[in-house]
């Protein structure tokens, strides 16, 4: 039986087909000496030889900074105005199966006790096309968190490398519609997919045990936290590249009389994240902030939203200036 395929040579046509209808096409591309997700206009810009983009594609659903309202202050009045959600039709191409698995949790959070239209409207208009991995590095650990390059969770369309083509599998209805809408670009044929590269499961990690141990809050003041994480320098790089980190801060910017209200990425690794107006900080030390991030990944978040707190993409490990490896902490908590 002939399968649906996408010839790599036809990527340009797919981009045209998407952008021609007014959409944006986001793909991994080389910028400033590294691979990043960016809006692209032509197939030549797309990187093919990469493990994972440095940034996660979350910024196309949940931008680093966005205006959520505008205000004008009068003598006795405050005029607050909503703004249109900028939610163009978007195709995220070349995402990896690990990062796509973050979407379920993202959705759960942004629709939790309040529907955040700034997220949901973009999500509705976004098609995520993942490509199974044919390369991995020593920071990859998807298999350790029960995902793999073959996972289709969160993907609308799942591709696999097959020489000069991709095999195409539409996963969701949105994905099927996408393939139909651009039917002229997709072909059919019989191609053999290249083998996927499975990162080795880290032997001493047992995810169930990690969750179990974190449930018992007696670990809270355990000396193991400062011991393992004392080198953390408290930058927010790990949280900013993480596909599942989604904390934000609301700030007002402008002059004395008018301005805009913005939703900006925030990071639990900053000491100001929990600093109270009184001056008290419940997470005074860096290891407590680190513990919070780890708890969020493997305890609070999965329990509350049954989504994945960590997808094993390894971005935090790669980007960390002091190489604080989350899997080494997972190992400790698997004992």
């Amino acid at each position: 039986m002939a399968d649906k395929i996408l010839k790599k040579a036809d990527l340009g046509k797919l981009i045209e087909s998407v952008t021609g209808k007014g959409g944006r096409f986001v793909a991994p591309t080389t910028d400033s000496r590294q691979i990043v997700f960016k809006k692209v206009k032509s197939a030549e810009e797309i990187a093919t030889d990469y493990i994972l983009a440095r940034n996660s594609f979350k910024e196309f659903l949940f931008p680093q900074t966005e205006v959520v309202a505008e205000f004008t202050l009068g003598k006795d009045t405050v005029d607050m105005r909503g703004v249109e959600v900028h939610a163009p039709q978007t195709v995220i191409f070349g995402a990896r199966p690990c990062e796509a698995a973050s979407l379920k949790g993202m959705h759960a959070l942004f629709t939790w006790d309040f529907i955040d239209e700034f997220y949901t409207k973009r999500e509705d208009n976004t098609v995520v096309v993942t490509v199974g991995c044919t390369k991995a590095d020593d920071a990859c650990f998807c298999t350790t968190v029960n995902l793999s390059p073959a996972s289709t969770e969160g993907a609308d369309v799942y591709l696999r490398e097959a020489g000069e083509s991709y095999t195409v599998e539409a996963i969701t209805d949105k994905g099927k519609k996408f393939v139909e809408a651009h039917a002229a670009v997709f072909g059919s044929g019989s191609v053999k997919a290249d083998p996927l590269v499975m990162p080795e499961k880290i032997a001493n990690i047992d995810l169930a045990k990690v969750s179990e141990r974190l449930k018992d809050k007696t670990h809270y003041d355990d000396k193991v936290w400062p011991k393992l994480t004392r080198k953390c320098i408290g930058c927010g790089a790990c949280t900013f590249v993480c596909p599942t980190c989604r904390c934000f801060d609301i700030v007002d910017e402008g002059t004395a009389f008018e301005g805009e209200r913005r939703k900006n990425w925030d990071s639990c690794q900053y000491d100001t994240f929990t600093l109270h107006a009184s001056g008290h900080n419940p997470r005074e030390h860096q290891h407590q902030r680190w513990r919070n991030r780890f708890m969020c990944k493997f305890n609070f978040f999965p329990e509350k939203f049954s989504g994945k707190g960590c997808v094993g993409c390894g971005r935090c490990v790669r980007v960390c200036p002091v190489r604080l490896d989350i899997t080494e902490v997972m190992e400790e908590f698997s004992k």
Binding site: D31, S32, Q64, I233, G234, C235, G236, A237, T239, F240, N264, W265, S267, Y270, P321, V322
Partner: peptide, 11 residues
């Protein structure tokens, strides 16, 4: 490109 992660400051 700055993402205001402040890694430059922290390190």
């Amino acid at each position: 490109r700055c993402v205001k992660c402040y890694a430059c400051r922290q390190v």
